[in-house]
């Protein structure tokens, strides 16, 4: 059963050490599995632990309790090099704040994951350019990030997340800094990636309009999973 899931969290918990030297549980008893090809939205109030969960799912952070399996492997057992490899090859991360390298050209930003995968230069360029074209920024290769609008920068970040052909895209409020028009364009890209390429997409949002693109919705309240089901069922009753 674990083999069919791309992601599986088992009684996962995360504590933060507070200033008062006590442990503050941010995530509690998180139990869920996501199969390859799903499009999942995670919703919840600010401070409910969504980003904390995403960081664990993205192997950027480690859980305090429980287990997290990625592609069938218990991440607790993996070395930091192996985790870096998973981040490089299986996961594509998209952040709310884009997180592009400011001094590096758009094309080199997109090609960066390939550098750490030991891909040769001509191949890096070719694939980065192909990804830029895919997100509609083929003509911007030599620009610097600060010469692009927020929506364009987020598309660059998506191209970078896609360049090493990951199985999983993790996006933490990818439209949080964008206007609604641009948000829709970005969501259209995620939708196409999921529908056409079968890439698993997990994204965090607090907007129902954004969550609407997903097929499954997990709602987190105070670090616990409060609801988990088809997006249409969960969202429908709320609608006026």
């Amino acid at each position: 059963m674990a083999d069919e899931c791309l992601i599986r969290a088992v009684e996962l918990g995360k504590d933060y050490l507070t200033a008062a030297d006590t442990f503050f549980p941010v995530l509690k008893d998180i139990d869920f599995a996501i199969a390859a090809g799903e499009f999942v939205a995670i919703m919840g109030h600010s401070g409910s632990g969504k980003s904390t969960l995403m960081n664990v799912l993205g192997c950027l952070d480690t859980p305090s309790r429980g287990h997290y399996y990625l592609a069938g492997q218990d991440t607790a057992a993996l070395s930091s090099d192996r985790l870096a490899e998973l981040r490089n090859r299986i996961i594509g991360f998209v952040f709310q704040g884009f997180n592009l390298l400011p001094r590096v050209s758009i094309q080199d930003n997109v090609a960066l994951p390939l550098l750490y995968a030991d891909v040769v230069k001509s191949e890096r360029r070719r694939r980065a350019q192909a990804m830029l074209e895919r997100v509609g920024l083929g003509g911007y290769a030599e620009r610097l990030p600060n010469q692009l609008s927020g929506g364009q920068q987020q598309r660059v970040a998506i191209a970078r997340a896609l360049v090493s052909n990951p199985q999983l895209i993790l996006a933490d409020e990818p439209t949080g800094n964008l206007d609604s028009q641009t948000s829709e364009e970005i969501m259209a890209i995620f939708g196409a990636l999921n529908a056409e390429n079968g890439i698993t997409v997990v994204l965090v949002t607090h907007e129902s309009d954004i969550a609407d693109y997903s097929r499954r919705l997990i709602r987190i309240v105070d670090g616990r999973i409060a609801q988990d089901g088809p997006t249409a069922q969960i969202l429908e009753p709320v609608r006026p």
Partner: peptide, 16 residues
């Protein structure tokens, strides 16, 4: 530091 974090997030190993 942030740049280092970004690099690690997209696959840089400690050795890199």
């Amino acid at each position: 530091t942030r740049e280092i974090g970004i690099r690690m997030a997209i696959g840089a190993k400690q050795g890199d």
